[in-house]
């Protein structure tokens, strides 16, 4: 079973990156091993847990179910490339993670969900977030975090927030969260 490596030109987090990969290599493994983007986690490599969720052209996808060779020409975004920080901050404030292993996948999925128009209802949120497993929390914390962001965005505060972020240039990750 000989196979040749091929050079793949990938778009990752806005940059063009070259990977030397086998045609059978998973996107997950190329992200982790070639680029050190270890935010996507190999929780099951079977599409069951969602810990490896990234965006492909803005859609949340399980990177263990994609071959890297499928991705040239597509925009891949990982948790490391997520800009904005609002969902991340909501996860911190609501204690929506403990061990944190499922968190990047949950945030990537929830963030994509929160950008839907019209804003998703409870059933849609459940349908989407059931593709990820969290073993530590009760899911209530995650629900609160996601709902909070969706609600804020649906109230049109997103525009204001974006403006503020541009102004202070912190990418949204500045400031005390404690208290």
């Amino acid at each position: 079973m000989k196979e040749a490596r091929c050079q793949l030109e990938l778009r990752i987090n806005g940059d063009t990156r070259l990977a030397n990969a086998y045609p059978t290599d998973l996107l997950l493994d190329v992200l982790r091993d070639s680029f050190g983007l270890t935010g996507a986690k190999p929780g099951c490599r079977n599409g069951d847990c969602g810990a490896c969720t990234v965006w492909v052209d803005g859609q949340p996808m399980k990177s263990c179910l994609l071959l890297a060779a499928e991705c040239p020409g597509l925009e891949v975004t990982t948790i490391e490339g997520l800009k904005g920080g609002e969902m991340q901050r909501a996860f911190v404030e609501q204690f929506a993670f403990q061990c944190g292993y499922c968190t990047p996948g949950f945030i990537m999925n929830a963030e994509a969900l929160s950008r839907l128009q019209p804003p998703p209802d409870e059933d849609t949120i459940r349908d989407w977030l059931q593709s990820n497993i969290c073993r530590c929390t009760s899911y209530e914390e995650i629900r609160l975090a996601v709902r909070e962001v969706i609600q804020r965005r649906s109230e049109g505060k997103l525009a204001e927030e974006a403006e503020r972020l541009v102004e202070d240039g912190s990418g949204g990750m500045k400031g005390e969260l404690n208290g």
């Binding site: 982790r32 091993d33 050190g36 983007l37 270890t38 935010g39 996507a40 986690k41 190999p42 990982t78 948790i79 490391e80 997520l82 991340q88 901050r89 996860f91 911190v92 404030e93 204690f95 993670f97 403990q98 944190g100 292993y101 968190t103 990047p104 945030i107 990750m173 969260l177 404690n178 208290g179």
Partner: peptide
């Protein structure tokens, strides 16, 4: 209710677990 010290690492993919070492 102090958030966990490693909170920012965990929500940005920066937190490193054993298997992340390559």
């Amino acid at each position: 209710s102090v958030p966990k010290k490693e909170s920012f690492y965990k929500v940005t993919g920066t937190a490193r677990y054993t298997g992340d070492r390559t």
